[in-house]
Every structure is written in structure tokens, then in C-alpha cells.
Design a protein around this nucleic acid. Structure first.
Lengths: 210, 210
DNA sequence: TTTTGTGAAGCGCTTCACAGCT
DNA sequence: AGCTGTGAAGCGCTTCACAAAA
């Protein structure tokens, strides 16, 4: 299963999500590459080739297609999603508090372990399914619980400072919702989720399809 | 400037954002391809080649580099982002209302024109910089103002129905924040912004860099 | 016969290297 | 000198087509 190309990883991730939804929708039984083509839009050959990277010769698809119960864990493992990871939310404004009550419905690969805010009132007032802490406890809590990822939902001008505090505490991955480009050392991975960017990508996609 | 490859479009979009931030940060003067390499991480040759797709022979980079004031509009035009588009928010829960108060700081390519919710109380109580309407006025408002894009922030089980109402009203692009895969006709473009997916992509990126 | 699995061909993107401009 | 612009080479991904399995 040595090397999987970047695009192939992206496709496998998407395919995994689609299969999960497919199963959740009540569908049962194997999925052929032709059905996967319909679900995902990619050619069936490409899908089969992608899957063949995972198996190293051992056939997991019979003559009826792929069994999602078999395929999904295989993809998870290949993409490194087979281990549970803890994450936390920084900044409990409207956006941050929205994500507090968001518990991933499927088999939780990700566990929301804590929420932080500089405003002590918010920490006390909000009722939340996960424990909330004032920001000064950040380093202590992150290292105590082994939190690996942070959702950065603070105002733009606080984002860089907040990110640096997380990183100092041991965070290695940041989902940044604040509309600024963070500058961090290369061993930290940042993924920006910025609405303007998403809108722009959407428009480009719209033009391509038309 | 005929054809720009998919990856190249992605890079140009990112480069445009980086340049905007670069200018906003107070930097002035031209940016060389070498500087752009440092900002973006892509090889300078690739960046130059990408830019050369836009110019059709006319040199816009002198011997000092590219002038952001010249380059940014050029990219915008090539990517079809040179026209202002209106969008609306559906579902004014925590997530939706967070985006109401979000006004893109830079030169607004996107204009938030309306917010909708089935709950009439919310519509009346929330104070917002943009007009809010009860959901039954959706079709009327969307066509009256020529809204093209919808941010779908409703609960998962309402998402499909809400999407269909939008599409019937003329919406052709949807940013879907609800954790379900929408099934829509091919002339409608959907882009999912689902936190679990973003976390998964982040993890894959983290593993690649390590 | 339907489906997967996979070497090999084909093709598109990236990288290179150098010409041209300032 | 430094930088951009771009044909051409190189390479990696996708597509094809067929063998193998159920």
C-alpha cells in the first residue's frame, strides 16, 4: 500500500464519506465500482485503481462489488484516520459555540475534549456537553488530556497570538476559521476554513460545470 | 488565456488571497516570483507559468516582479470573480447567525443580501446588518434581489428540503454546512463545508508533512 | 457473465533551461 | 545583473484494455 498519490487520497477520503452516508441511509450489501462512479462522479477505473493501492494484492471485491464494512476501515487505516484524536475549540463566540454542540454523528474519530475563551463569563454561562475553561488554563488542559488539534474561532486580531499559545502547548494541527493567514513553524499544519475562500471556490466550480 | 488547468486555478486563487493579505499587511511595491514562492510554497517556475496563462503575451512583470495592484484584478477576471454576487444565509441558528455578522473585509466580491429562518421569532429578535425574512418569503426575495448563492446552515434533516426550495427559486450554488450529502441536479453546484471532513483533511495533511 | 485487479499506453501538469526584456 | 515569459523535456496521474476470479 506504499504510495498513494495526493489526488487519490482526496478521492478515497470523499469515497469513504459517501460510503458512510450510503450505509447510514439504510443501504446494505456490496457497492460496485459502477455504483461508486455514480455516487462520486469519478470514473470507475480510477476508483478501482485507487482501491487497489490499499490491498496489496489481496482481493477485497468479489464479483459483486466492495463491502463497505470492509472497505471503509481499510481506507481509514491507509489515510491514518484509524486512531481517535482529541480536539478543542478556542473562542466561544457564535461560531465557536456552534461547534461545541456539534457532535460528529458517525463513529467518532474525533473527540471534542474542551472549549476555551478569554471571557470568563462565557465559560460559566454557556451550557455545553464538554467542559469549558478560561483561556489561561489552555496549556495545562491541552497537555493533560493530550489534545492534538484546535478549532480556532477567535476574532481575527487575536488569532495569531492564540495560535502561538496552542502550539506552545503542543498542538500540531489547527483548523483556522479566523479570516487571517497564520504564520506558524513548518511542523504545525494549518487548514483555513474561510467563508470568502469557500465562496470563491464555489464560483469557480460553478463556472467549470456550466 | 484560453485554458487554465484545474490545479493552476487553485493556485491562482490562493496566490490572490496571499497577495491581498500581503498588501493589507502594509507591504507595498512589486512581488517577485521568488517572494511568491516563499509566501505560497509552490516553485517559482510554476507560479510564473500560471501567471503567463493570464497575460496572452503582454508582460505584466517588469524586471522587479509583479505589481499586486495589476495582478490581483487579472486573476479575479480569469477566475470569474470580477463580478459582484449576492448570497443569502438559510437557517439562523448559532452557525447561521455567526455568518450574518460576517462582512468580508476586503473589496466585497460577495454581498450578503438576506437571511432566512422558519422560526419567525428568530427573524424578529436577531439584530442583523442585513434584512431577515421568514422562510416562506424565500422564493420571492431570492428572485427579486437576484441572489445567486445560498449558505445552508439549517439542521441536517431539513437540509435537502431547504436546498430544493432554493434551487426552485433560482439558486445555482450552495455552500452546505449541514452534515449531509445533498442530491441535486447537475446544473447546481454544491460545496460542502463539513467540520468532520475538514478535520480529516487536516490529519492527512499533518501526516504528509511529518 | 459480471466484476475486480493491474501492467501499459496516453496525456496533462510540472519542471527545466534559456531567450527576451528592463 | 535580475527578472519574467515560454517552448520542450520529463514525470506522474489517469485511462485503457484485458487477464483473472467469483
Amino acid at each position: 500500500m506504499a504510495d498513494i498519490s495526493g489526488p487519490a487520497k482526496e478521492r478515497l477520503l470523499q469515497l469513504m464519506c459517501l460510503l458512510e452516508n450510503h450505509v447510514l441511509a439504510g443501504n446494505t450489501g456490496p457497492v460496485t465500482s459502477a455504483q461508486a462512479e455514480q455516487l462520486s462522479g469519478w470514473p470507475r477505473d480510477t476508483i478501482r485503481k485507487d482501491i487497489s493501492c490499499l490491498t496489496e494484492g489481496a482481493s477485497i471485491g468479489g464479483n459483486a462489488g466492495y463491502e463497505p464494512e470492509l472497505l471503509i476501515p481499510l481506507i481509514k487505516k491507509a489515510l491514518g484516520l484509524d486512531r481517535r484524536r482529541k480536539f478543542c475549540v478556542l473562542g466561544l463566540g457564535r461560531l465557536g459555540s456552534a461547534y461545541l454542540n456539534f457532535t460528529p454523528p458517525e463513529l467518532a474519530e474525533f473527540e471534542l475534549a474542551a472549549g476555551f475563551d478569554t471571557n470568563v463569563n462565557r465559560v460559566e454561562i454557556l451550557n455545553s456537553p464538554v467542559p469549558l475553561y478560561p483561556a489561561y488554563k489552555l496549556a495545562e488542559i491541552i497537555s493533560r488530556f493530550g489534545i492534538e488539534i484546535a478549532l480556532l474561532c477567535v476574532p481575527a486580531k487575536e488569532a495569531q497570538a492564540a495560535a502561538e499559545k496552542c502550539i506552545a502547548a503542543g498542538i500540531r494541527g489547527i483548523l483556522n476559521f479566523a479570516p487571517v493567514a497564520l504564520s506558524v513553524s513548518p511542523e504545525v499544519t494549518v487548514r483555513n476554513v474561510y467563508v470568502t475562500d469557500e465562496l470563491r471556490s464555489l464560483v469557480i466550480k460553478m463556472r467549470n460545470e456550466k
